[in-house]
Write a protein that binds this DNA or RNA. Structure first.
Lengths: 139, 139
DNA sequence: CTAAGTGCAAAATGTTTGCATACTT
DNA sequence: AAGTATGCAAACATTTTGCACTTAG
């Protein structure tokens, strides 16, 4: 029987280090593989990110682009506040600001709804990707 | 250049009808293909759902299952407003209120983030389920 | 020493594309 | 008649799996 995560290996460490060193980056398995060079195989990268996602250390985002590659990013934090996900580049950002608290209070007071900030992710477009989209449509 | 949607064809109609007849169902392209039998090819199904998504008639959902197939479902409503999902009873509710618009404006103005209300679902607990939870913890 | 982890190559999957044909307008 | 839509097959990209080998405990 596979006792997952029983052994600590060089490859696991290298992959975990990579995400820690690029905590803002949102990358594909292929990109991690390319960055680490000969140290690890692509299969191991896939296996590692799958496990890290299960453990909650990473977050996976599957982009709209149907056949496209899944993106992985270090879970920014487990604290309770909202996150916003860009639907184009996939980046997950923190959103800690007073207005969110006002919004949460309003949901509770007027709608009787207890928002779970840890589970909720807002979807949309970040500043950069919004600009890129505008450029494309103008062309 | 392809003038999209210029002609109305039997296949497009059959596919659109399928989703209308199964408005609650969340199905893969392959399932649509299988259901429609010899009437349409898989290629046409893919092209049709892609267009219907662009038009906003369908919603695409890419499951966690990394290599898994995308799911398509008739868009429950086209109006721009947020939905809230109760994590206990699973109910999906509409959230139409002015405060949401203020919040959206704030996201754009202060954070440069264009919220896609159609894609975003807030997670938490509805009034009833919150009450039930309190009862349990008190016991 | 034993079981878990690795990595290559091959398979499996899901989606897209090239192109000749059929169909809509 | 002009040009879009279809559908097959092949291409394509991503992810998973089989298996022999390596490595951690």
């Amino acid at each position: 029987m596979a006792a997952r995560g029983a052994y600590q290996t060089k490859q696991k460490e290298v992959i975990a280090d990579y995400f820690r060193a690029h905590s803002d980056a949102c990358v594909t398995a292929e990109e991690v593989y390319a960055a680490l060079g000969a140290d690890v195989g692509i299969t191991t990268v896939y296996r590692a990110v799958a496990r890290l996602c299960e453990e909650g250390a990473l977050r996976r985002y599957t982009p709209q682009n149907a056949g496209g590659a899944a993106l992985y990013q270090l879970n920014p934090c487990k604290e309770s506040h909202l996150h916003i996900r860009c639907m184009d580049c996939g980046t997950l950002e923190h959103l800690r600001c007073d207005v969110v608290h006002d919004f949460t209070k309003h949901l509770l007071g007027k709608h009787g709804f207890v928002l779970d900030e840890g589970q909720t992710v807002l979807y949309g477009l970040c500043k950069q990707c919004e600009a890129k989209r505008k450029q494309k449509t103008e062309k």
